[in-house]
């Protein structure tokens, strides 16, 4: 994100504009230096690499979730879907496949299950929250059935995505970077990305304009499922084992990262880079709290406060300006994390 070194005024202006829109990003950077001051070890190169590795799974899953939220949807099933992806590797069928094929099948299977969410949202017209709240239970139940709730060890051949080192960079960081950049590109520069934005801004307007709304919805849940699988491949590689409660509650962390990154839950406004920054801030906070020896109980409180602060400060300069300029009541009636003001 700190690309202004390229002395491109346009980029600089957009960066400053973005930071002004989301002061929490600035706060996150400040936080980084505060932790660095308290605990000198925090700022070492190896710890920064550490933070990036620890954020990788959240970065990948968060990218997928951003697509879904951009359409005005939500995915509460992502943690369960990831567990289901891992569970599939435990079945005997996959023991006989070559490692690379088995690993590739994980995101394919999670993509198929993810697109089932999309079908229910798009064609039955059930709110995404209900669909994914129910499918959370279905996915975790199936995963539990497949594994019989036993934990299992991942053989070394399947751990490349977690343990590999490509061009001197740990594989999780490489994969997360590729996913984030690709995700941002698709959302901003491709037809699918524009469709996603249009469906999120107004589903009926998009339908009236002749956009394939149903397919766009299925596509974003498929992307969410695909990336949940990719995230799991990385996580499996890092952990080397699967436990029955793996990633339960992870969906809330993912949504927190998305909201923190400034993507509107009503859809239409936001982006992958914001989510990536949100994911990094969450990881920095957790890592910093552990390193400074804070009570393990305090993380949830901090997470809640950070989330509220992000909501309250998003677009603060713009809101302040218009508050001064225009009628106060009118500004207050504009939802903060609501429909686009542009």
């Amino acid at each position: 994100m700190t690309a202004p070194a390229r002395s491109n005024r346009n980029v600089l202006r957009r960066v400053v504009g973005f930071l002004g829109e989301y002061p929490l990003i600035v706060a996150g950077l400040l936080l980084f230096f505060v932790f660095a001051a308290i605990q000198p070890h925090f700022i070492t190169g190896s710890n920064v690499v550490n933070i990036l590795i620890q954020a990788s799974v959240l970065l990948i899953a968060g990218t997928g979730a951003t697509f879904i939220v951009m359409t005005g949807g939500i995915d509460l099933s992502v943690g369960a879907l990831m567990f289901l992806g891992a569970a599939i590797l435990s079945s005997t069928l996959f023991g006989v496949l070559p490692p690379l094929v088995a690993l590739l099948l994980v995101p394919i299977v999670t993509m198929i299950f993810g697109s089932l969410n999309g079908l229910a949202v798009a064609y039955a017209g059930v709110p995404a929250m209900i669909v994914t709240l129910a499918s959370l239970q279905v996915f975790r139940g199936i995963g539990g059935h497949v594994t019989e709730q036993r934990s299992f060890i991942i053989p070394d051949g399947l751990r490349v995505a977690g343990e590999g080192n490509w061009l001197g960079i740990p594989a999780p960081i490489v994969i997360a970077a590729i996913v984030v950049i690709l995700g941002a590109y698709v959302l901003r520069r491709t037809r699918l990305g524009r469709f996603v934005q249009a469906v999120g801004s107004s589903r009926s307007a998009a339908a009236n304009a002749g956009l394939p709304v149903g397919w766009v919805l299925v596509a974003v849940y498929a992307i969410g499922g695909l990336l949940a699988g990719v995230a799991m491949v990385v996580q499996l590689g890092r952990l080397g084992a699967v436990q029955p409660t793996l990633d339960s509650g992870f969906e809330l962390t993912v949504i927190t990262a998305v909201v923190l990154g400034g993507t509107s839950l009503d859809g239409g406004r936001g982006g992958v880079i914001g989510t990536a920054l949100g994911a990094l801030i969450l990881t920095i906070v957790e890592n910093g709290l552990v390193l400074t020896g804070a009570s393990p109980y305090i993380f949830d409180i901090v997470r809640g406060v950070v989330l509220l602060a992000a909501l309250l400060t998003s677009g603060a300069p713009r809101r302040l300006l218009s508050w001064i300029k225009r009628d106060r009541e009118e500004v207050l009636d504009t939802p903060l994390n609501g429909p686009s003001l542009h």
């Binding site: 539990g144 019989e148 709730q149 036993r150 934990s151 436990q243 029955p244 409660t245």
Partner: peptide, 8 residues
């Protein structure tokens, strides 16, 4: 309380 390896 739950199922896992030890419980199994």
């Amino acid at each position: 309380d739950l199922l896992n390896d030890i419980r199994n």
